[in-house]
């Protein structure tokens, strides 16, 4: 019996070791991504609303020129702490396509809360045509879609530099330390002071990258806080009922052993 338990333990450990190797395989040959400290790290982490709002501002003023986030709606801004009026005002800054109207024509109008985030290009072909043949990916779930998640986004945004001696950079490409293959079509878009934050936070590249990474992490997993809160409660509940059940089991089996 005892020996068998050991065997089982070894198997479980073995399986665990295998599975933990899984993320490594996906990272491929890319440089190790530095670990950034985010407020939502760890199992009890939550989003920093001020950071998310600043991150949205960075997205709005910088990223949204090329990248869509078509899974998000302006109403979602209420979830990161904007008031209804603020969110309505932010939405109204964008013109979205609506229609057809009674004349059968499409028309533009200011966005409402129920509208999806405006797409910068009408379709993928237009996006490629405007971007030297490269398609800027939709950012709605980018943090879930990249190994390393928010850490990777942060590293990528701060990883631009001149190529090392002898590195052959393709036409229209940019060198980035953390992009797989180091050649990325996206230029370095964050420059110091580019975004003026209303709350007085310094518009440094580091701050902008950090905030927009947080914002994208929230956009990819808006359920994260609710999920973790619920998880803690459910596991506590299970531990208690598990103890009770085990006690009942001991009692039931007492006269057999």
């Amino acid at each position: 019996m005892l020996r068998f338990r050991n065997l089982l333990g070894a198997l479980v450990l073995g399986a665990g070791a295998l599975l933990s190797a899984a993320p490594a395989r996906a990272a491929g040959e890319a440089v190790a991504i530095p670990d950034t400290r985010f407020s939502f790290d760890g199992i009890f982490g939550t989003f920093d609303r001020a950071s998310l709002q600043r991150g949205f501002q960075v997205y709005k003023e910088v990223c949204s020129a090329c990248h869509s986030m078509h899974l998000l709606s302006y109403r979602n801004l209420l979830e990161i702490g904007f008031t209804g009026d603020q969110a309505r005002a932010l939405a109204a800054q964008f013109q979205v396509m609506d229609g057809p109207n009674d004349q059968g024509e499409m028309f533009e109008r200011p966005a409402r809360l129920s509208d999806r985030f405006r797409r910068p290009f009408p379709n993928d072909q237009a996006a490629r045509a405007a971007n030297n043949g490269a398609l800027p990916p939709d950012l709605s779930v980018i943090v879930k879609a990249r190994p390393g998640g928010a850490d990777y986004i942060h590293a990528l945004l701060t990883g631009y530099s001149d190529p090392p001696e002898g590195f052959q950079l393709g036409q229209g490409m940019n060198y980035n330390k953390y992009f797989p293959g180091h050649q990325i079509a996206m230029p370095n878009v964050l420059n110091p002071g580019q975004v003026q934050f209303a709350d007085g936070t310094e518009g440094s590249v580091e701050n902008m990258a950090h905030d927009v990474s947080s914002f994208l992490a929230w956009a990819a997993e808006p359920e994260l806080e609710q999920r973790r809160r619920m998880g803690v409660r459910i596991i506590l509940f299970l531990v208690v009922i598990g103890g009770l059940t085990y006690a009942v089991k001991r009692k039931v089996w007492a006269d057999v052993h």
């Binding site: 009922i241 009770l244 009942v248 009692k251």
Partner: peptide, 8 residues
């Protein structure tokens, strides 16, 4: 115990 576990 049974009652408590059952209630849970």
């Amino acid at each position: 115990l049974k009652l408590t576990a059952g209630a849970f």
